[in-house]
Computed example of a mutant assay.
Amino acid sequence: MGKIRLKGMTWDHRRAVDPLLAARDMFTRRHPEIEVIWHSRPLSGFEFTPVDVLAETYDLIILDHPFMGRVANSGCLLPLGSSLALHDGDFVGPSLATYRMAGEIWSVPVDAACQVAVSRPDLMARLGGHVPRDWQQLLRLGHEARQRGLWLAIGLKGVHSLMTFFTLMANLGRPCAIDPAEPLFEAGAAREALGLMRALLAYCPPQALDWNSIALHDQMSLRDDLVFCPAVYCYATYAEADHPHPLRFHDFPGPQGPRGSTIGGTGLGVSARSAHPGAALAYARFAAELDTQLLFAHHHGQPARRAAWEDAAINDRFGGCYRDTRATMDQCWIRPRYDGYLAFQEAGGDLIESHLRGDMAEAALLDRLSELHAAA
């Protein structure tokens, strides 16, 4: 008999692709009868392509947790709780909880991330090297940066505007609703969060509204005028030594400290339509193991296992990223995951971006966001 061939889909960045390719030999030694072939798609596809569509073609899918409501309703993925020994305490922050819906676990956490701060150490040194711990200190840093011809930074293109809004709302202690039957926000808190975003933008270049998370990291690594970003989904690989200017990561400097960051990361799901469910589950089990995730980390990956975040060699490789953002990760907020939420996420991010560009009044924005949430 020939080999079993599994097709997998991930997203197109070395943080996502390289760990999976590096682990291939390790998996093949254990399961020589199974071959896994990985494909990738852009970040925008990862954020919005429906998982039930991907499940028609791929056996293994790297996905984002806001799809869980749709997954649970459609049954497009296999539930994993009865097949794999998965425990919340083995994963950092609420990583596993993000994939739990309707009493089942639908994905294995293979990558952990949330919105944290990132800096250029060489540029920070020009400003005294003090890392801001809250929003007031952040704005003072922005003032000092502009006096030296430097900028703060943020990536607020589309959905990333919404994520930063979510993070600030949760940090203020008044998180947005995760149930569409409830009002999306308390209006006073929403106005406060938007005001904090506008205050930050006064110290950022205009291009900040054109950047997603990857572009933000790229620009901070390449340009010589972007000193500090308070909130972006962490890409720890940009702290590795092979970058022209390795970045450093820090806890989120929210108005109330590091709490409330909107969790991201990725999970590995198994298609319910796979012709080889046993082989696909074997790979999911392999991907959940600590040794596998340690290997991921040493090939530009961003592990979700708690022990990997605490590993000294991994922290050395990534400039202390995991150690220095752990408080934020452990106090994360989980955004909505109901079936229909992704339509709100896409439209809501564009609306907040439009407001920040000056094209929509605050009152009109809040009304429209509330309407979209209720309709979802």
Rank of each mutant, 00 (worst) to 15 (best):
N212S: 12
L196G: 02
I314K: 05
G158Y: 03
H373E: 03
K3Q: 06
A202Q: 15
W38H: 08
L96G: 03
H39C: 04
D25Y: 05
S370F: 04
T328N: 07
Y238A: 01
P42C: 11
G301F: 08
D359A: 14
A215I: 02
A241T: 09
A241Y: 06
R285I: 00
G320M: 02
R70N: 12
E182L: 12
H31P: 00
R259D: 10
M124Q: 08
Q207I: 10
G93K: 01
G142E: 11
D179Y: 05
L294V: 14
E35T: 10
E289G: 08
R174W: 07
N315G: 11
V270M: 04
T49R: 02
G69H: 08
D225W: 07
G89R: 09
H31V: 00
L43V: 09
I34L: 05
G260N: 11
A308T: 10
K7N: 11
A236Q: 07
T164I: 08
L216N: 12
P230H: 09
H299D: 14
M1D: 10
Y99T: 05
G75T: 12
A236M: 00
G358N: 15
P50D: 07
G89N: 13
H355C: 15
D251C: 14
E186D: 15
H13T: 14
D111E: 15
G103I: 11
A215F: 00
V159T: 14
M124K: 03
Q147E: 15
Y99C: 02
A239Q: 07
W333S: 10
L172W: 05
P244F: 04
R306M: 15
L281S: 09
A190W: 05
L290Y: 15
G260F: 05
M360P: 03
A374F: 13
D210I: 00
A125E: 10
R146S: 15
G2V: 02
F27M: 05
D330M: 12
I263E: 03
V232K: 00
D316T: 13
Y203M: 04
Q147V: 12
V227E: 08
E240A: 11
R191P: 01
S82T: 12
E362H: 07
L268W: 03
V227R: 04
E182C: 09
P32Y: 06
D339T: 05
R248H: 15
E371G: 07
Q136T: 11
A374M: 11
E310F: 02
V36T: 06
R14W: 08
P175W: 09
R70F: 00
M68G: 14
F48M: 09
T57I: 14
R174I: 08
A297C: 07
G129H: 14
L268N: 06
S44N: 12
A117L: 10
M9L: 15
F166R: 04
H87W: 03
M124G: 08
T262R: 01
F228L: 10
P336T: 13
R140P: 00
A199K: 12
Q136F: 09
P183H: 06
